Computed example of a mutant assay.
Amino acid sequence: MKVHYLEIVTPDVQKICVSYTQALGVSFSGPITELGGACMATLGDGLTLGIRAPMHTAEEPTIRPYYLVSDIEKAVKDAEESGAEVAVSPMEIPGRGKCAILFYGTIQSGLWQV
């Protein structure tokens, strides 16, 4: 199992980016539209870290790992059959693959297929 993308949703994007830059020595991009306006940094192991603001008033701050899968449709189906709620069905992110968001109660996870 490999985390492909780690997403942090926070109302304090700039503050968190500055803090992570200082603590981790990484540089963040400007907002990337297709990732909900996330500012991105690539960590030493190839993991991509995205920090963005909530996209709507009902979206709570969270830290959401997206696990790399080879077949996202099957992985989402299997997760749903085991009790996960599909919050976002597999969707294409132009040039980046497909992702989906799952809720396991209050725990949020994502899946990513490249």
Rank of each mutant, 00 (worst) to 15 (best):
L6D: 01
I72Q: 03
I32N: 04
G105T: 06
Q108G: 00
V26G: 09
E73G: 13
I93K: 07
A87S: 14
P31C: 09
A87D: 10
R96L: 08
D78P: 04
V69Q: 02
T42P: 04
H56D: 13
Q22F: 15
A58E: 12
Q22L: 15
D71N: 15
T106C: 02
L6G: 12
S109I: 13
P54D: 07
V13K: 10
I63P: 03
G37A: 01
A38M: 11
G95P: 02
Y66P: 05
P90T: 14
L6F: 15
A79Y: 02
E7W: 02
E60V: 07
L68C: 07
E59D: 10
S89C: 08
I93W: 04
V114M: 01
V26E: 13
A58F: 12
T21S: 13
G105S: 02
Y67H: 08
P31T: 08
K77C: 02
E85T: 15
T57M: 03
S109P: 03
T48V: 15
T106W: 00
L24T: 07
G36M: 02
G83S: 12
H56L: 01
V9N: 03
G36T: 07
H56A: 10
V114L: 02
Y66C: 05
I63V: 12
V86P: 03
I107N: 15
D12Q: 13
S109Y: 12
D71A: 10
G36C: 06
S82R: 14
A41N: 08
K74G: 01
L111P: 03
D12L: 07
A79M: 05
Y67N: 07
L68G: 03
R52I: 07
P65L: 08
G44N: 04
P61C: 07
I16T: 06
L6M: 10
R96K: 09
K98D: 06
E73I: 11
A75R: 09
T48S: 05
L49K: 11
L24W: 06
R52H: 06
T48R: 10
P61L: 05
P65G: 09
I101C: 04
T42L: 09
A53N: 09
C17L: 01
S19W: 13
I101H: 07
L24F: 06
G30I: 00
P11F: 08
A84T: 05
S70N: 11
K74Q: 12
W112K: 00
T21H: 04
Q22A: 15
W112R: 05
S82N: 14
E73F: 13
I8N: 00
G44V: 00
E80C: 11
S82F: 15
L43N: 00
Y67P: 01
T48E: 13
S82M: 05
A84F: 03
L6S: 10
F103H: 14
I32R: 01
A75Y: 06
E7G: 10
S82T: 14
E7C: 06
G95W: 03
P65H: 02
P31F: 02
Y67C: 10
M55T: 09
V69L: 08
H56S: 10
